[in-house]
């Protein structure tokens, strides 16, 4: 009798400890990792290789530098929205892995259904010279303090026969900030070892909504209409890939 009671008590104790551990773990803030891989159409982007066809005309192009600002990341939760502090992140891909991974620590536990972020930065940050997050007025992403930041930087060259045409797409201006929203898979939770995996299609800069002939428009800098065209396009360049944990 006594022994039976003891067994029951031990079982209850174990259950309680287990439940406590579960509750404790799921109530702790966790890391959310975002991963961005660049592709050109279907294949991974290879920097400095002259192999991509000019979408609107003749010639092949190469990409020498491609980077952009991500900002204002918000995770939309059941209880409340989590706004990432100092959320200005420079996504760049000229590293060994060829990808950009962003780890956001301290995300409170919640059931998150969606994520929003911007390509580009908000007007307040764009007209400030404070170094917040990855914003740096002394970096190559800054034009000068009277103009603000480049949101998306693409530099390369278009080769057609013997001619080499430099390609310079520096797109900024506050009106060209694009806010993107993605629904999250149900399995998503802070602290998950699997990052949220996005693909960034570099070709979409020139094919998204407006198809661009690089020979006719080899550079975009301060012309508002041209900048808007590229911005319309980059608004479509990011997509959320299915995470491995949520594979179908």
């Amino acid at each position: 009798m006594d022994r039976k009671l003891l067994k029951v008590l031990v079982a209850i104790a174990l259950l309680l400890i287990g439940a406590w551990i579960y509750v404790y773990q799921t109530s702790q803030p966790g890391v959310v990792s975002l991963r961005f891989d660049t592709v050109v159409g279907e294949e991974p982007l290879a920097l400095n290789e002259t192999r991509y066809p000019n979408p609107g005309g003749a010639g092949l192009f190469r990409v020498r530098d491609f980077q952009f600002y991500l900002s204002n990341i918000v995770l939309h939760g059941k209880k409340k929205d989590y706004r990432v502090p100092d959320s200005y992140h420079l996504a760049r891909f000229d590293n060994a892995s060829g990808r950009y991974q962003l780890d956001l620590p301290g995300v409170p536990p919640d059931a998150y259904s969606a994520i929003t972020f911007s390509i580009g930065i908000d007007d307040a940050a764009n007209s400030s010279i404070a170094s917040v997050g990855d914003l740096d007025p002394n970096s190559r992403m800054a034009w000068n303090w009277e103009v603000g930041y480049k949101f998306v930087l693409f530099e390369g060259a278009l080769l057609d026969g013997d001619t080499v045409q430099p390609l310079v797409y520096h797109v900024g201006f506050s009106e060209n900030r694009k806010i993107l929203r993605f629904d999250l898979p149900e399995s998503f939770a802070p602290g998950s070892p699997e990052p949220l995996s996005f693909t960034v299609d570099v070709m979409a800069l020139f094919t998204g909504k407006v198809t661009i002939d690089m020979a006719a428009l080899p550079n975009v800098k301060f012309d508002r209409a041209d900048a808007r065209s590229i911005a319309e396009n980059y608004g479509e360049m990011v997509s959320l890939a299915t995470t491995t944990g949520d594979a179908q």
């Binding site: 760049r92 007025p137 002394n138 970096s139 190559r140 301060f222």
Partner: peptide, 28 residues
């Protein structure tokens, strides 16, 4: 950085020499 399309004249020094420091860029 010059842009003929919007009649902006420039010497593009800032493309390599940052605006306040006038040095090269620090990232990477």
């Amino acid at each position: 950085h010059p842009d003929v399309k919007v009649s902006l004249r420039g010497a593009n020094c800032i493309d390599c020499h940052s605006q306040f420091l006038t040095s090269g860029f620090s990232t990477g």
